[in-house]
């Protein structure tokens, strides 16, 4: 993964007054967010707070209703933008991995390189294998996703995204669907990626990870940013009542935690 960071300069993100509604239901009510190149930002907040929607707006998996998004100085909300071109620069990791079950692990990591970036097969495979090695799964290159554990699948999904040499990585609750014992492997890879200088926006419930790895933590609730700042500050010493309440629920082991979807 060091390779991808070496090849593509990390990009920053600038979001201003972002709005998104589903019918009458306004999910994002004017979000402003700045992510500097190489910065790691964790989005936290209760279920339905709009954090996943915000993340999915950045690569236009959700079409915003208003506001502007810039990635690496590139206005992705411009109506004339080449969305597909933009997405090759923005890696996305999903909660449910979404590996392609009909392709091998190697096929998963090469298909977009050859079909979208038009790389030669040999070059694509070399890049894919080096990314798979970096997540510790080079030996599984010829297996099918169905034969892998959840944690392994998610690591392949990260390698698949990195093989495109993105300048920004988006993570949508990457460990929420994992067995507890495999969460650590995935977080370790994300930590390494952060150290290598990748710009990362991460929706997560892993407060330990956020506190340790994130440069900035953004707490969202009800479609607005309630509080944001240095990770240790927001998590260690929250100022807003809603943030305090949320963190108490998440961090207090004696508190009954209601599992999110």
């Amino acid at each position: 993964m060091t390779q991808s960071v070496r090849q593509a300069a990390a990009a920053g993100v600038r979001i201003s007054d972002l709005r998104k509604s589903y019918g009458d239901n306004e999910v994002l009510k004017g979000i402003d967010l700045e992510v500097s190149p190489g910065e790691v930002v964790c989005l936290i907040g209760p279920s339905g707070s709009g954090k996943s929607t915000l993340l999915r707006c950045i690569n236009l998996l959700e079409q915003p209703n208003g506001g502007a998004i810039e990635v690496g100085g590139y206005a992705v909300t411009d109506p004339d933008v080449d969305v597909d071109q933009m997405r090759t620069k923005v890696g996305m990791v999903f909660q449910q991995f979404n590996l392609f079950p009909h392709l091998t692990v190697l096929g998963n990591c090469t298909v977009a390189q050859t079909k979208v970036l038009k790389r030669a097969k040999a070059e694509a495979e070399r890049t894919a294998l080096s990314e798979l090695e970096a997540v510790g799964l080079g030996h599984l290159a010829h297996r099918y996703p169905g034969e892998l554990s959840g944690g392994q699948q998610q690591r392949v999904a990260i390698a698949r995204a990195l093989a495109m040499n993105p300048s920004l990585m988006l993570f949508d609750e990457p460990t929420s669907a994992l067995d507890p014992e495999t969460v650590g492997d995935v977080l370790a890879i994300m930590r390494k990626l952060a150290q290598a200088g990748m710009t990362m926006v991460v929706v997560t419930h892993e407060m330990g990870f956020a506190k340790e790895v994130a440069d900035k933590v953004v707490f969202m609730d009800g479609g607005v940013v309630v509080e944001q700042g240095v990770a240790a500050e927001v998590i260690g010493n929250p100022q807003q009542a809603r943030t305090k309440d949320f963190l108490r629920r998440v961090l207090d082991p004696n508190h009954v935690v209601v599992e999110e979807d």
Binding site: R87, T88, M92, A161, M164
Partner: peptide, 15 residues
Amino acid sequence: VPKGQLEAARSLGMP
């Protein structure tokens, strides 16, 4: 075919 398959493919820049 789960919706996530199309989303993952589109996220990789596929038209």
